[in-house]
Computed example of a mutant assay.
Amino acid sequence: MELHTNRLVLKPYTKDLAERVVELAGDEDVAATTFVPHPYTLEIAEQWIAAHQAWIDNKNAFPMSMILKETEELIGTMTLRVDSKNNKGELAYWVGKQYWNKGFASEAAKRIVEFGLEELNLHRIWSAAISTNPASTKVMEKAGLTYEGTLKQDIYHWGEYKDIDVYGLVKQV
């Protein structure tokens, strides 16, 4: 399974990408603004990648590597986690710091939202971001999701309670 955008290929992870995942997701600035664990070890990356095929086969989640077409390098992750009981999906992502503010996450998010609505026929797609991460909320907005509310002090992250902004999109029939 591969999804394409102008500049990216979104496809399942392979084991050989584990070290690059650690390099990108292990960056303290990436972890500080996302739900990615820190420190991010090779063992965590390998276990995470090893679980992917079962998730995809069962249609529970579609964790896709974001690969630059031009250089074939991994730059981040775009995931759609599926809640089949409620026919909805959760959009989740991270991008390596050196690729921030270049529109890659927005480009990939638009494509995975389209995949969720059209190919998986989901009724709703939602996403959440730490309120102090406006770049992430811009990605959600560019993917067609709209602000639904803020969950006050919803997570305990890096020693403090943080607010979470929730965005969503309901399929228009």
Rank of each mutant, 00 (worst) to 15 (best):
V95Y: 10
I67K: 11
A129H: 13
P37A: 02
E160R: 11
W55I: 12
K69L: 07
L151E: 09
G149S: 03
N58Q: 15
V36Y: 03
E28C: 09
W158I: 11
Q153I: 03
R20E: 14
Y156T: 06
Y167M: 02
N101S: 14
W100S: 00
I44P: 05
A18V: 00
N133F: 09
N60W: 11
I112Q: 06
Q172A: 10
K69Q: 11
L24M: 05
T34Q: 01
V95K: 03
D57V: 15
P134K: 01
F104G: 04
I44W: 09
L42W: 08
T5W: 12
G159W: 03
I44D: 13
E23W: 11
Y93D: 07
A18D: 04
M1W: 04
T132C: 09
Y93N: 04
K59S: 14
L120K: 05
H123V: 15
K102Q: 15
A92F: 08
A129Y: 09
L120G: 13
D29R: 13
E2H: 13
K110F: 07
N60L: 15
V21H: 13
T71N: 11
I130H: 03
E114N: 14
K97V: 14
T71K: 14
F62V: 01
I125Q: 07
E141M: 06
L151N: 04
V166S: 00
A51P: 08
E2I: 10
T14E: 12
I67P: 14
D57W: 07
R20L: 06
M1R: 14
D165T: 11
I125A: 00
G96C: 09
A135W: 08
D83Q: 00
K69E: 00
T79H: 07
K11F: 03
L24P: 02
V36S: 04
K142M: 00
H38I: 11
L17A: 09
A25E: 06
M78S: 07
L3Q: 08
G159I: 06
V30D: 03
S136M: 05
P12V: 03
D57L: 15
I67G: 13
N121P: 11
V170A: 06
A61Y: 05
